[in-house]
Nucleic acid binder design. Structure first.
Ligand SMILES: [Mn+2]
Ligand SMILES: [Mn+2]
Ligand SMILES: [Mn+2]
Ligand SMILES: [Mn+2]
Lengths: 229, 229
DNA sequence: AATAATTTTTAGATTAGTCTAAAAATTAAA
DNA sequence: TTTAATTTTTAGACTAATCTAAAAATTATT
């Protein structure tokens, strides 16, 4: 079932989701992506993935040779980036204009990212004053698909006495985001590392010069930050 | 392909569109709707409609007996109204917040109306200050699905010397809406009928006490209005 | 280098939604 | 009240996307 049968340039929701999944796997895993990795990310079976890979290859959206893994063509990458752009702009809209919390936006954005209208995206971008990052600190590709990756590090990599600014998260699950809310940790807040426990690499930190909390290494590995100033 | 396999209450886009089409046909044509009428409205074939009617009947969304036509169950009507509510709220958003023109919103709203999130709809409604009508003058069902139909008449039914207020359109095509723009006729403007030509029932009218134009009976039959004061 | 384990692909089936062509039922006309 | 025209339904086929089970290819281990 096609969204719009009028134009051959149209993708189904499913195709768009595959392209996005492949893009994100390449972004984190490396250059060539396996069938199984896609199956896991898409929560489907390897056989279904193989089917889809053939179709995407036919449409020149991916480079694919049997048993050799997958990369995106520039056409495929362009589509993936436009989906990511829409996802993050909609998340921004939901938080900024409709007062959603940052742990409530992802599911809805998963639907909104497939709405097809260039004018809608550009006007939405303008309405939001051309945001550079989304509510989770992830960069928003510009209209041309250019994405400027902010260079931050895992909080777990910083040292005692470092003062840093929280810039993003690795784990985007609502569970983790709600934990951060409770801990008073939000995007842009100051995190001063008071102590690093040798034994388990857990941290004692001061948030916004206000309150002191302990965070496990597991948590620290899912927080992104940069050194202050 | 279901949008969300988690809940049995979920409809596919296609099912939602059929329910909406049946609702609108009942609204204008009368109580019982034929297979062919649905086929025409959905731009599909009668055989496809019969297939779908069986499925909708299985789900208790319509009352359907072979050869006897279709009506909506209250469950089916509730879904139809929620789709219409979303469609009109999104049109309002596009015009009010993203500065779309009234002839540009329908296609995009056709996509947005299927986004599934109660919170999104209620927050959007609030963000727009709970509008009662959409950019074309059509009433927006409230959160409970209650729809208050504004009682207006075709401009073609009014008489010489009547002064009325434009409240809506029958034809929603962008062609007709663009014609109205050019003629300076917009929702809420005053239309004073200066003359009715016997021969072809065309009208000479004054818009907003500003300019005089001639409109054919064909046009007048597609404009809704109420008497001023 | 041969065998075992793993990954990937094929084969065949299923479901939603669509189509055309033909059969059946209803409605209109003679 | 038969016959003709129209409407609606069935039958059978197609596509996209999915699945399971089995075959083939690749990679790892002896
Ligand atoms: Mn997200
Ligand atoms: Mn995000
Ligand atoms: Mn509309
Ligand atoms: Mn409208």
């Amino acid at each position: 079932m096609y969204i719009c049968s009028k134009f051959s340039t149209m993708q189904s929701f499913t195709e768009e989701n595959y392209l996005k999944a492949i893009y994100k796997l390449i972004e984190q895993e490396g250059d060539v992506i396996t069938t199984n990795a896609i199956a896991e990310k898409m929560r489907t079976k390897a056989a279904s993935v193989t089917d889809m890979l053939k179709r995407l290859a036919d449409k020149k959206l991916i480079h694919y040779k049997k048993y050799q893994g997958v990369t995106l063509t520039s056409k495929g990458e362009k589509i993936a980036l436009s989906i990511i752009r829409k996802h993050r702009l909609w998340e921004m809209f939901l938080v900024e204009k409709l007062h959603f919390k940052w742990d409530e936006v992802h599911e809805v954005a998963e639907q909104l990212e497939h709405i097809n209208s260039d004018k809608l995206v550009e006007q939405l971008d303008k309405f939001l004053s051309y945001p550079k990052i989304d509510p989770h600190g992830d960069p928003i590709p510009d209209a041309k698909g250019k994405l400027t990756i902010p260079k931050s590090n895992l909080l777990s990599k910083f040292n005692k006495h470092d003062v840093c600014i929280m810039t993003g998260v690795v784990d985007h699950s609502s569970g983790f985001l709600q934990y951060l809310d409770k801990a008073g940790i939000a995007l842009g807040c100051e995190i001063k590392i008071k102590d690093v426990v040798e034994f388990d690499r857990s941290l004692r930190v001061v948030i916004n010069k206000e309150h002191t909390i302990f965070i496990s290494n597991d948590v620290a590995k899912n927080i992104l930050a940069i050194l202050k100033k």
